[in-house]
C-alpha cells in the first residue's frame, strides 16, 4: 500500500482517480491545486505524486518542476488533457522536461492508471 497525493482541480475527476486507487489499496490524500499540494507535502510524506497538468490556480508544470528539483526522488505521474492547441507529443515533452517520470493522457482507462501507478511504485524511489 502506498501513500499517494492526487492534485486535480476537477472534483469529479479527482474523485474518480481517488476511488480507483483506494480500491487498489492505496492511501489517498487530495489537493485541488499546486499550492495546496505543496502544503500537503510539507506536512507529510508520499510515495507518489499524481498531478493534473492544466490547473487554473497554479500550473501543474510548475508543481512538477518544484517537486522534481527538491531533490527528494518522489515519483511523479502527470495527467494531461493534452491542451487544445498542443500536440500530445509536445505536452509529453513539456511534462517530462519539467521532471515528470510518466505522463498519462486523458481519456484513459482505470487499468491504465493502475498499471502506470504500479510501475512507478515498483521503481521504488522511496518516501518523500
Amino acid at each position: 500500500m502506498a501513500r499517494i497525493l492526487i492534485v486535480e482541480d476537477t472534483p469529479d475527476f479527482r474523485l474518480m482517480m481517488r476511488d480507483i486507487l483506494q480500491t487498489a489499496g492505496h492511501e489517498i490524500v487530495e489537493a485541488e491545486n499546486g499550492n495546496a499540494a505543496i502544503r500537503k507535502m510539507e506536512s507529510g510524506s508520499f510515495d507518489l505524486l499524481v498531478t493534473d497538468v492544466l490547473m487554473p490556480e497554479s500550473d501543474g508544470i510548475e508543481l512538477i518542476n518544484t517537486v522534481a528539483h527538491q531533490g527528494g526522488n518522489l515519483p511523479i505521474l502527470a495527467v494531461s488533457g493534452g491542451g487544445r492547441n498542443l500536440p500530445a507529443a509536445v505536452s509529453l515533452a513539456l511534462t517530462e522536461a519539467a521532471g515528470a517520470h510518466r505522463t498519462l493522457f486523458k481519456p484513459f482507462r482505470a487499468a491504465e492508471l493502475l498499471a502506470v501507478v504500479d510501475e512507478l511504485l515498483s521503481a521504488g524511489k522511496g518516501k518523500n
Binding site: 475527476f13 474518480m16 495527467v79 488533457g81 486523458k106 481519456p107 484513459f108 482507462r109 482505470a110 492508471l113
Partner: peptide, 8 residues
C-alpha cells in the same frame, strides 16, 4: 465510442 476516464 469511448468509456474511458477524463472525456469532457
Amino acid at each position: 465510442p469511448d468509456s474511458r476516464l477524463g472525456r469532457r
